[in-house]
């Protein structure tokens, strides 16, 4: 005979895991179903639901046949941004983490405190401040450039906008990566290094064959968090350029926004793009999570 108690005893994890599973189901399954259904309709924001019609896979056809001229460009720059931002943040973050770890200065806690700042600043306001700094006419950056080097840069213009957004992203998240890796470096045991030094290993060899493997789980973690968040990037780009000039900075999430927000209100079409974004995010995160778990198991 089936008994609840017996079932729970055999599945001991349930009482720990079930609440979270239920919560996440409610919070994510219903919106996801809405998204899928909406992506097959011509629904617009503010319509009665009765006004919406099913249009089959028209919304997807529009994306993949190039009728939505901005779509592939959005995919391309989103992926490019993810790769470039993650790579630089990881490299720079690693460098700063090493500097911090090797430094014996009494001011080190201060430096760590400063690195928390970009995370603590409210992004919606921080991005506005950056917009002020970037302004080509009355911004601080150009003022400095103009007066020291005699030239100025159109930071939010066609050619530079992507890199300006990247710069803000680097400012905001490099310290985050650096702090993670610094924490990892600090807690590494000294013995392997001492042994390697006795064996005459160069510092590059120690880095390559000791530090990196020992930190691999953390490196993957930083990679995962940064890659996915860079893929989803919204606030900064929205405040700085709204996707422009032209469609120079219309990342996927901004494309979703441009289609779905009140100006257009094309919720149906936007849902199709959101589905694509969702799939890309899931593929990337699944891949990285697997690698991360494997790295963790190797370590244990």
């Amino acid at each position: 005979m089936f008994s609840v108690k017996g079932f729970l005893q055999r599945n001991g994890h349930l009482k720990y895991v079930a609440p979270v599973m239920c919560l996440m189901m409610v919070l994510s399954i219903i919106p996801t179903i809405f998204l899928i259904v909406a992506s097959f309709t011509n629904y617009q924001l503010g319509w009665d639901f009765s006004r919406a019609k099913f249009v089959g896979i028209d919304n997807y056809i529009r994306l993949f046949t190039g009728a939505d001229t901005a779509f592939w460009h959005s995919v391309l720059i989103s992926v490019a941004f993810m790769v470039v931002a993650t790579a630089i943040e990881l490299a720079l973050g690693f460098w700063i983490a090493t500097l911090l770890n090797n430094s014996e200065s009494k001011l080190k806690p201060l430096a760590v405190g400063i690195m928390i700042l970009p995370l603590a600043m409210t992004p919606s306001i921080a991005a506005q401040v950056w917009k002020l700094i970037f302004n080509s006419e009355y911004g601080l950056l150009n003022y400095i450039l103009q007066n020291t080097f005699g030239f100025s840069v159109t930071w939010l213009g066609q050619d530079m906008a992507f890199w300006s957004i990247l710069l803000v992203d680097l400012w905001q998240f490099t310290p985050f990566v650096a702090l993670i890796l610094y924490a990892g470096l600090r807690s590494m045991p000294a013995e392997p290094y001492e042994a390697a030094a006795i064996d005459g290993a160069t510092s590059w060899q120690m880095f390559r064959f000791l530090t990196i493997p020992m930190l691999s789980k953390l490196i993957y973690l930083a990679l995962l968090l940064r890659a996915v968040d860079a893929l989803k990037l919204f606030d900064t780009a929205f405040v700085l350029t709204q996707g422009g000039p032209g469609n120079a900075t219309e990342f996927l999430s901004l494309h979703v926004f441009r289609l779905a927000n009140a100006q257009n209100g094309l919720v149906g079409r936007a849902s199709a793009v959101a589905m694509v974004l969702l799939v890309i995010v899931m593929v990337v995160s699944r891949f990285l999570i697997k690698r991360q778990r494997r790295a963790a198991e190797v370590m244990l």
């Binding site: 302004n135 080509s136 006419e137 009355y138 159109t154 930071w155 939010l156 213009g157 066609q158 906008a161 350029t241 422009g244 000039p245 032209g246």
Partner: peptide, 19 residues
């Protein structure tokens, strides 16, 4: 117009003139 006019709303357009 200023080279980044492509990112101007009425706000930036107004400021550019006012400065």
């Amino acid at each position: 117009a200023p080279p980044d006019v492509g990112s101007y709303t009425h706000e930036e357009a107004l400021n550019a003139f006012m400065v």
